[in-house]
Protein backbone atom coordinates (compact mmCIF):
# COMPACT_ATOMS: atom_id res chain seq x y z
CA UNK A 1 0.00 0.00 0.00
CA UNK A 2 1.19 3.47 -0.85
CA UNK A 3 1.40 6.02 1.96
CA UNK A 4 -0.07 8.75 -0.27
CA UNK A 5 -1.80 8.42 -3.62
CA UNK A 6 -3.26 11.10 -5.87
CA UNK A 7 -5.08 10.33 -9.08
CA UNK A 8 -5.97 13.06 -11.57
CA UNK A 9 -6.69 15.71 -8.97
CA UNK A 10 -8.13 19.03 -10.14
CA UNK A 11 -8.91 22.13 -8.12
CA UNK A 12 -9.90 25.63 -9.19
CA UNK A 13 -10.82 28.76 -7.27
CA UNK A 14 -13.14 31.50 -8.49
CA UNK A 15 -11.44 34.88 -8.70
CA UNK A 16 -13.78 37.70 -9.69
CA UNK A 17 -15.65 36.39 -12.73
CA UNK A 18 -13.05 33.91 -13.88
CA UNK A 19 -11.68 30.81 -12.27
CA UNK A 20 -8.06 29.91 -11.68
CA UNK A 21 -6.94 26.32 -12.09
CA UNK A 22 -4.56 25.86 -9.15
CA UNK A 23 -4.23 22.07 -9.32
CA UNK A 24 -4.34 20.76 -12.85
CA UNK A 25 -4.53 16.98 -13.25
CA UNK A 26 -2.02 16.03 -10.58
CA UNK A 27 -1.14 12.39 -9.97
CA UNK A 28 1.67 10.98 -7.88
CA UNK A 29 2.25 8.55 -5.06
CA UNK A 30 4.51 8.40 -2.04
CA UNK A 31 5.91 5.11 -0.79
CA UNK A 32 5.82 4.01 2.81
CA UNK A 33 8.75 5.52 4.70
CA UNK A 34 9.71 7.82 1.84
CA UNK A 35 10.82 11.44 2.12
CA UNK A 36 9.04 13.00 -0.83
CA UNK A 37 9.45 16.63 -1.87
CA UNK A 38 7.02 18.85 -3.74
CA UNK A 39 9.30 21.46 -5.28
CA UNK A 40 7.99 24.64 -6.85
CA UNK A 41 7.54 28.40 -6.50
CA UNK A 42 4.68 30.24 -4.78
CA UNK A 43 1.42 29.74 -6.62
CA UNK A 44 2.41 26.33 -7.99
CA UNK A 45 -0.46 24.62 -6.12
CA UNK A 46 1.55 23.00 -3.35
CA UNK A 47 -0.62 24.21 -0.48
CA UNK A 48 -3.86 23.19 -2.20
CA UNK A 49 -2.49 19.67 -2.67
CA UNK A 50 -1.54 19.54 1.02
CA UNK A 51 -4.98 20.74 2.07
CA UNK A 52 -6.69 18.15 -0.14
CA UNK A 53 -4.56 15.36 1.32
CA UNK A 54 -5.09 16.49 4.91
CA UNK A 55 -8.87 16.48 4.33
CA UNK A 56 -9.22 20.24 4.74
CA UNK A 57 -10.20 20.98 1.13
CA UNK A 58 -12.32 19.12 -1.40
CA UNK A 59 -10.90 18.55 -4.86
CA UNK A 60 -13.13 19.33 -7.86
CA UNK A 61 -12.25 16.02 -9.49
CA UNK A 62 -10.02 13.02 -8.91
CA UNK A 63 -9.21 10.61 -6.10
CA UNK A 64 -6.72 10.77 -3.27
CA UNK A 65 -5.83 8.34 -0.52
CA UNK A 66 -3.64 8.43 2.55
CA UNK A 67 -2.58 4.97 3.77
CA UNK A 68 -5.46 3.50 1.84
CA UNK A 69 -8.07 5.82 3.33
CA UNK A 70 -10.07 7.99 0.96
CA UNK A 71 -9.67 11.72 1.67
CA UNK A 72 -13.43 12.33 1.31
CA UNK A 73 -15.06 9.21 2.77
CA UNK A 74 -12.53 8.40 5.46
CA UNK A 75 -11.49 11.87 6.56
CA UNK A 76 -11.86 11.02 10.24
CA UNK A 77 -9.46 8.07 10.04
CA UNK A 78 -6.95 10.14 8.12
CA UNK A 79 -6.92 12.93 10.66
CA UNK A 80 -5.91 10.46 13.37
CA UNK A 81 -2.88 9.13 11.58
CA UNK A 82 -1.34 12.21 10.00
CA UNK A 83 0.58 15.18 11.28
CA UNK A 84 0.23 18.49 9.45
CA UNK A 85 2.39 21.57 9.72
CA UNK A 86 0.81 24.35 7.65
CA UNK A 87 2.91 27.04 6.00
CA UNK A 88 1.42 29.68 8.23
CA UNK A 89 2.02 29.37 11.98
CA UNK A 90 -1.23 27.94 13.31
CA UNK A 91 -0.67 27.17 16.98
CA UNK A 92 -2.38 28.95 19.85
CA UNK A 93 -0.40 32.15 20.34
CA UNK A 94 -1.77 32.75 23.83
CA UNK A 95 -0.92 29.30 25.12
CA UNK A 96 2.60 28.58 26.34
CA UNK A 97 4.98 26.26 24.55
CA UNK A 98 4.20 23.43 26.91
CA UNK A 99 0.42 24.08 26.87
CA UNK A 100 0.35 23.89 23.08
CA UNK A 101 2.14 20.57 23.04
CA UNK A 102 -0.05 19.21 25.81
CA UNK A 103 -3.18 20.40 24.00
CA UNK A 104 -2.25 18.55 20.81
CA UNK A 105 -1.30 15.42 22.75
CA UNK A 106 -4.62 15.50 24.61
CA UNK A 107 -6.89 15.89 21.59
CA UNK A 108 -5.19 12.86 20.07
CA UNK A 109 -5.75 10.91 23.27
CA UNK A 110 -2.13 10.62 24.23
CA UNK A 111 0.37 12.32 26.53
CA UNK A 112 3.64 14.14 26.05
CA UNK A 113 5.36 11.47 28.10
CA UNK A 114 4.10 8.61 25.94
CA UNK A 115 5.65 9.92 22.74
CA UNK A 116 8.38 12.09 24.19
CA UNK A 117 11.10 10.07 22.49
CA UNK A 118 9.80 11.09 19.07
CA UNK A 119 9.93 14.82 19.74
CA UNK A 120 12.77 14.88 22.25
CA UNK A 121 15.40 15.81 19.72
CA UNK A 122 13.46 18.92 18.64
CA UNK A 123 11.55 19.77 21.78
CA UNK A 124 14.52 19.77 24.14
CA UNK A 125 15.77 22.89 22.36
CA UNK A 126 12.49 24.57 23.36
CA UNK A 127 12.32 23.33 26.92
CA UNK A 128 14.16 26.32 28.43
CA UNK A 129 11.28 28.44 27.07
CA UNK A 130 8.41 26.10 27.87
CA UNK A 131 6.54 28.69 29.93
CA UNK A 132 6.76 31.31 27.19
CA UNK A 133 3.65 32.04 25.13
CA UNK A 134 3.88 30.69 21.59
CA UNK A 135 3.12 34.15 20.15
CA UNK A 136 6.31 35.47 21.77
CA UNK A 137 8.63 32.91 20.22
CA UNK A 138 11.12 33.63 17.45
CA UNK A 139 10.44 32.29 13.97
CA UNK A 140 12.87 29.41 14.32
CA UNK A 141 11.41 28.37 17.65
CA UNK A 142 7.83 28.59 16.37
CA UNK A 143 8.82 26.25 13.58
CA UNK A 144 10.27 23.74 16.05
CA UNK A 145 7.18 23.92 18.25
CA UNK A 146 4.88 23.44 15.26
CA UNK A 147 6.84 20.38 14.22
CA UNK A 148 6.71 18.99 17.78
CA UNK A 149 2.93 19.49 17.88
CA UNK A 150 2.53 17.78 14.50
CA UNK A 151 4.51 14.80 15.81
CA UNK A 152 3.27 14.32 19.37
CA UNK A 153 0.54 11.81 18.46
CA UNK A 154 3.05 9.68 16.53
CA UNK A 155 1.60 10.14 13.05
CA UNK A 156 2.33 7.67 10.27
CA UNK A 157 2.49 10.35 7.60
CA UNK A 158 3.82 13.84 8.15
CA UNK A 159 2.77 16.74 5.88
CA UNK A 160 5.08 19.76 6.04
CA UNK A 161 4.04 22.73 3.93
CA UNK A 162 7.03 24.99 3.27
CA UNK A 163 8.65 24.50 6.67
CA UNK A 164 11.82 26.35 5.64
CA UNK A 165 10.46 29.36 3.75
CA UNK A 166 12.11 32.57 4.90
CA UNK A 167 14.48 30.60 7.11
CA UNK A 168 18.22 31.30 6.88
CA UNK A 169 20.57 28.70 5.34
CA UNK A 170 21.95 27.50 8.68
CA UNK A 171 18.55 26.84 10.24
CA UNK A 172 17.38 25.25 7.00
CA UNK A 173 20.23 22.74 7.12
CA UNK A 174 19.39 21.92 10.75
CA UNK A 175 15.75 21.43 9.86
CA UNK A 176 16.58 18.96 7.11
CA UNK A 177 18.81 17.04 9.50
CA UNK A 178 15.79 16.71 11.81
CA UNK A 179 13.70 15.41 8.91
CA UNK A 180 16.30 12.77 8.11
CA UNK A 181 16.19 11.52 11.70
CA UNK A 182 12.37 11.36 11.60
CA UNK A 183 12.51 9.40 8.37
CA UNK A 184 14.89 6.90 9.97
CA UNK A 185 12.16 6.24 12.53
CA UNK A 186 9.86 5.08 9.75
CA UNK A 187 7.67 8.16 9.35
CA UNK A 188 6.61 8.96 5.79
CA UNK A 189 7.19 12.62 5.02
CA UNK A 190 5.68 14.78 2.30
CA UNK A 191 7.39 18.17 2.33
CA UNK A 192 7.11 21.19 0.05
CA UNK A 193 9.70 23.87 -0.58
CA UNK A 194 10.46 26.69 -3.01
CA UNK A 195 14.21 26.19 -2.43
CA UNK A 196 15.58 24.07 -5.26
CA UNK A 197 18.76 23.19 -3.33
CA UNK A 198 16.65 21.28 -0.80
CA UNK A 199 15.36 18.94 -3.51
CA UNK A 200 18.52 16.85 -3.34
CA UNK A 201 17.79 15.95 0.28
CA UNK A 202 14.60 14.07 -0.71
CA UNK A 203 14.31 10.44 -1.84
CA UNK A 204 12.05 11.48 -4.70
CA UNK A 205 10.67 14.80 -5.83
CA UNK A 206 7.88 16.21 -7.94
CA UNK A 207 8.70 19.47 -9.70
CA UNK A 208 5.54 21.55 -9.90
CA UNK A 209 4.61 24.82 -11.62
CA UNK A 210 1.22 26.47 -12.25
CA UNK A 211 -0.69 23.50 -10.86
CA UNK A 212 1.00 20.99 -13.16
CA UNK A 213 3.63 18.38 -12.35
CA UNK A 214 6.64 18.89 -14.59
CA UNK A 215 8.48 15.75 -13.54
CA UNK A 216 8.61 13.08 -10.84
CA UNK A 217 11.73 11.07 -10.09
CA UNK A 218 14.74 10.80 -7.79
CA UNK A 219 16.83 13.99 -7.75
CA UNK A 220 19.71 12.07 -9.33
CA UNK A 221 17.61 10.76 -12.21
CA UNK A 222 16.21 14.21 -12.87
CA UNK A 223 19.70 15.71 -13.00
CA UNK A 224 20.92 12.85 -15.21
CA UNK A 225 18.09 13.39 -17.66
CA UNK A 226 19.21 16.93 -18.53
CA UNK A 227 19.79 16.45 -22.24
CA UNK A 228 22.17 19.30 -23.07
CA UNK A 229 25.77 20.10 -22.34
CA UNK A 230 25.81 22.69 -19.60
CA UNK A 231 28.58 25.28 -19.60
CA UNK A 232 29.62 27.36 -16.62
CA UNK A 233 31.17 30.61 -17.76
CA UNK A 234 32.68 33.52 -15.88
CA UNK A 235 34.76 36.60 -16.58
CA UNK A 236 35.68 39.81 -14.82
CA UNK A 237 32.52 41.61 -15.96
CA UNK A 238 29.64 39.27 -15.23
CA UNK A 239 26.84 41.67 -16.17
CA UNK A 240 28.31 42.33 -19.61
CA UNK A 241 29.07 38.64 -20.01
CA UNK A 242 25.44 37.74 -19.39
CA UNK A 243 24.28 40.08 -22.13
CA UNK A 244 27.04 38.99 -24.50
CA UNK A 245 26.27 35.31 -24.01
CA UNK A 246 22.58 35.93 -24.60
CA UNK A 247 23.31 37.54 -27.95
CA UNK A 248 25.66 34.75 -29.05
CA UNK A 249 23.94 33.22 -32.09
CA UNK A 250 24.20 29.67 -30.82
CA UNK A 251 22.84 30.35 -27.32
CA UNK A 252 19.73 28.51 -26.28
CA UNK A 253 19.55 29.77 -22.70
CA UNK A 254 21.80 31.68 -20.37
CA UNK A 255 21.13 32.36 -16.70
CA UNK A 256 23.11 33.83 -13.84
CA UNK A 257 23.98 31.07 -11.38
CA UNK A 258 25.92 32.59 -8.51
CA UNK A 259 29.59 32.69 -9.30
CA UNK A 260 29.08 31.49 -12.91
CA UNK A 261 26.58 31.91 -15.72
CA UNK A 262 25.01 28.67 -16.91
CA UNK A 263 24.73 28.32 -20.65
CA UNK A 264 23.16 25.81 -23.01
CA UNK A 265 23.65 25.94 -26.76
CA UNK A 266 21.29 25.19 -29.64
CA UNK A 267 23.91 23.07 -31.31
CA UNK A 268 25.06 20.74 -28.58
CA UNK A 269 28.13 19.55 -30.49
CA UNK A 270 29.65 22.97 -31.07
CA UNK A 271 33.39 23.21 -30.75
CA UNK A 272 34.13 24.94 -27.44
CA UNK A 273 36.80 27.05 -29.12
CA UNK A 274 34.08 28.89 -31.08
CA UNK A 275 32.56 29.95 -27.78
CA UNK A 276 35.97 30.90 -26.39
CA UNK A 277 36.68 32.97 -29.47
CA UNK A 278 33.34 34.78 -29.21
CA UNK A 279 33.88 35.60 -25.54
CA UNK A 280 37.40 36.90 -26.22
CA UNK A 281 36.15 38.98 -29.16
CA UNK A 282 33.54 40.52 -26.86
CA UNK A 283 36.41 41.91 -24.84
CA UNK A 284 36.32 39.70 -21.76
CA UNK A 285 39.45 39.18 -19.72
CA UNK A 286 40.30 36.04 -17.77
CA UNK A 287 37.22 34.17 -18.97
CA UNK A 288 36.80 30.57 -17.92
CA UNK A 289 34.50 28.02 -19.52
CA UNK A 290 33.85 24.53 -18.22
CA UNK A 291 31.30 21.80 -18.74
CA UNK A 292 29.46 21.02 -15.53
CA UNK A 293 26.75 18.73 -14.19
CA UNK A 294 23.33 20.37 -13.91
CA UNK A 295 21.63 21.15 -10.59
CA UNK A 296 17.92 20.62 -9.92
CA UNK A 297 17.39 24.33 -10.56
CA UNK A 298 18.85 23.99 -14.08
CA UNK A 299 16.44 21.13 -14.73
CA UNK A 300 13.49 23.06 -13.33
CA UNK A 301 14.20 26.02 -15.60
CA UNK A 302 14.58 23.80 -18.63
CA UNK A 303 11.25 22.11 -17.85
CA UNK A 304 9.51 25.47 -17.29
CA UNK A 305 9.97 26.49 -20.89
Amino acid sequence: MKAVELENIFKSYPIKKTSVQVVDDVSFSVDDGELFGLIGPDGAGKTSIFRILTTLLLADKGNAKVLGYDVVKDWKSIRNIIGYMPGRFSLYQDLTVEENLEFFATIFNTTIRENYKLVEDIYKQLEPFKTRRAGKLSGGMKQKLALSCALIHKPKVLFLDEPTTGVDPVSRKEFWEMLKRLKSQGITILVSTPYMDEAKLCDRIALIQNGKILKIDTPQNIMDSFDKNLFAVRSENMFKLLNDLRTFNNTESCFAFGEFHHLTLKDNDINISDLEKYIAQSGHLNATIKIIKPEIEDCFMQLMK
Binding site: G40, P41, D42, A44, T165, G166, P194, M196, Q209, F239, L242, F255, A256, E297, F300, M301, M304
Partner: peptide, 20 residues
Protein backbone atom coordinates in the same frame (compact mmCIF):
# COMPACT_ATOMS: atom_id res chain seq x y z
CA UNK B 1 14.25 43.07 1.97
CA UNK B 2 14.20 39.47 0.67
CA UNK B 3 12.71 40.54 -2.64
CA UNK B 4 12.87 37.12 -4.32
CA UNK B 5 11.54 34.76 -1.62
CA UNK B 6 9.28 32.09 -3.13
CA UNK B 7 9.67 33.40 -6.68
CA UNK B 8 10.27 30.85 -9.48
CA UNK B 9 13.87 30.41 -10.65
CA UNK B 10 13.50 32.15 -14.01
CA UNK B 11 11.67 35.17 -12.60
CA UNK B 12 14.20 35.33 -9.77
CA UNK B 13 16.94 35.81 -12.36
CA UNK B 14 14.90 38.33 -14.36
CA UNK B 15 14.55 40.23 -11.12
CA UNK B 16 18.32 40.32 -10.75
CA UNK B 17 18.63 41.56 -14.35
CA UNK B 18 16.53 44.54 -13.21
CA UNK B 19 18.77 45.05 -10.19
CA UNK B 20 21.87 45.06 -12.39
Amino acid sequence: DEPTGGVDPITRRQFWDMIY
